[in-house]
Design a protein around this nucleic acid. Structure first.
Lengths: 125, 125
DNA sequence: TCGAGTACCTGGCATAGTCAAGTAGTAGGC
DNA sequence: GCCTACTACTTGACTATGCCAGGTACTCGA
């Protein structure tokens, strides 16, 4: 099984993913959830996506429009505004630079603990 | 200019980094802040690190001990407990699998918007 | 009419990073 | 003795944001 994802790790990343997916293709909430799940975020919920979309629209990063559907209620299609596109590129840069710090640290080999010396009361750097 | 880091992106990642750095070498808060800054997290503050360390200790993932210093107040050295080591490996796995989803999406080329068709009122999937 | 699938929204909650301020110890200069 | 700077830790209030649970409502087929 896929390891249970830590909700905290998604913070900030979700809105980035939303901006990105909507920059690739205009889409509505319900579909975005499906697209996220297809990407591998299997346990993402509507309760995470809809509020995030609403917030991004409120902040002027997304612009939505209602389109009637023949298979259910009207869909609200979102696409990034210019401000949204800028937020996307800035956010992408932030994420990449953070990942560039985090990744190498997490994958480098742990030193053998038995060879390390421990600080004692009187030692000082 | 380095892009201002989004505080949200650090959520969850910070405790992972702390566990990792302390698994590599026992260390105290003030020093951990310096180690993080050397890694490139230049605008990390003490107010983020100390509470995180305290929380990890409270949760039984870190164990701390006081060591007197000749250059200031006593230092509180932390090292991971067995539970902390397990949290580290689980967290690392979570982070890697999330990054494996996020990274490709963020770096793939955006399709040319002019070639895409927009949904209209009567279309349906 | 009833259930299932589609589609959206909301309130309340928990988590965790940030800011600002405070407390103390050591050491050097005057 | 006093002041400043560096070291070192702590705390309270604030904020952002994902998650859960529940609700509304439309379409379609049995």
């Amino acid at each position: 099984m896929v390891p249970t994802h830590d909700p905290q790790l998604l913070k900030g990343v979700l809105s980035l993913l939303l901006l990105r997916l909507l920059a690739e293709r205009e889409s509505y909430g319900y579909e975005v959830v499906q697209r996220l799940r297809e990407l591998g975020l299997s346990d993402i919920g509507e309760g995470s996506v809809y509020p995030a979309l609403a917030r991004l629209e409120r902040e002027g990063r997304l612009q939505g429009r209602l389109v009637a559907s023949r298979s259910g209620p009207a869909r609200k299609y979102y696409r990034p505004t210019p401000a949204g596109s800028q937020a996307l590129s800035e956010g992408t840069e932030s994420w990449l630079s953070l990942a560039a710090v985090v990744h190498p640290v997490l994958v480098r080999r742990l030193p053998d603990p038995s060879t390390t010396t421990l600080p004692t009361a009187t030692e000082d750097t």
